[in-house]
Simulated scan of single mutants.
Amino acid sequence: MTDILFTPVALNERIELKNRILMAPLTRCMADDALVPTQAMVDYYARRADAGLIISEATIIRPDGQGYPNTPGIFTQAQIAGWRKVTDAVHENGGKIFAQLWHTGRVAHPHFWGGTEVIAPSAVGVEGTVPRMRELTYLVPREATALEIAQLVEDYAKAAENAIEAGFDGVEIHGANGYMIDEFLHYDSNRREDEFGGSPENMVCFPLQVVDAVTSRIGAARTALRISPAAYFNIEPDPRDRAVFDLLLSELDTRELAYLHGGIFDDSVHYDYLDGRVSEYLRRHSRHTLVGVGSYDAETAAAAIATNKFDVIAIGRPFIANHDYVARVREGAELKPYSDELLPVLY
């Protein structure tokens, strides 16, 4: 029933995956205090190189992008060197790995970089406290200026360049799940009245500038994107968002990408304003290779791929519990169950 998962797939002329099982990006908060990948991270990723592609844990593009403790960066030479050890180990084990590039936007916290403020599309905050550091309360961000937005675009492009220097096979731009890029794409978090807000045409401007800058720097064949047309996280739903994502996807269809990845926690959820599941919406509106994600197991993912609902599957928590997930699925072996008790250790 799962044979289709073990067929190779070409993302483009440059990159072919040995199977259709991707390791989803999984934030583990295990970098050192300088946000440099550790030897434990090297071993963790190397053990999972049987995946057709590993997508790294979200990796911050610059200091003020940090919103969680000990999340790795890719903006210093020490961080690049640390990631090089990871990518070398993955490649030695026959795997491929993309870096997920991340700025947390309005859920960043200046505690991490010794600052005093946070920037975001608009001065609209979220309630609550920083995960794993409940003593830190979120701040109301300051609206980023046009010059600061231009600098963000450059910093995404530089981070992509750094990722290639670190040996990654490509990058996935994290444009999903309520972080900086995603915040520009939703009316709740983007209340600007300039060229970056107020209409679908303006709201897609910054995300597309990032995509274009990254592809210009490292090539479209090595550039992927994750987006969240629904599955709201730290953002209130607004039916007007549909027009924003319709336009974004039509614009992306004029560009080349390695793949498009839906940022969704449960793809069984039906969204009325999307006329179905997130994966269904993306399949209808995008010509790109589509990564399915969200509560699939090997059997349901194989069935979805066989019926052309998406092309490859990203598996998350089962990869935390099973470093040999691909082998277990291939052999029909029982999987170890995931539990939160596994989070403090890189197994």
Rank of each mutant, 00 (worst) to 15 (best):
A163V: 13
F168C: 01
I181E: 07
R242Y: 06
A221Y: 07
D266R: 02
G178E: 02
G178L: 04
A163M: 12
N177D: 11
S189H: 12
L257M: 04
Y273P: 00
I235C: 06
E148G: 01
E183W: 03
Q209K: 15
E154L: 13
A150C: 11
P229F: 05
F245N: 06
L248E: 08
G262M: 08
L248N: 12
S279W: 04
P239M: 09
S279N: 08
N162H: 14
E165G: 00
M203Q: 14
E148P: 00
H285G: 12
Y273A: 07
S189K: 12
N177T: 10
I235M: 12
V210F: 10
N177V: 03
H261G: 08
I164M: 14
V210R: 07
S279A: 15
Y179I: 11
A157W: 01
D194I: 02
E165C: 03
E183D: 13
E201N: 13
E195F: 03
F233T: 08
Y232K: 05
D246N: 13
G198C: 11
R226E: 01
D188L: 02
D272C: 03
F245R: 01
Y271T: 01
E280N: 12
I235Y: 10
R283N: 09
A176L: 05
I264M: 10
D182F: 04
N190R: 05
E195P: 00
A159D: 12
E161L: 09
L257C: 03
G167K: 01
S189Q: 11
A163E: 09
L185C: 14
L208C: 09
Y271G: 04
L260D: 02
I264A: 10
D241N: 09
P237H: 02
F245M: 07
A221I: 00
G276F: 02
A243D: 11
F206M: 15
G276N: 02
G167Y: 04
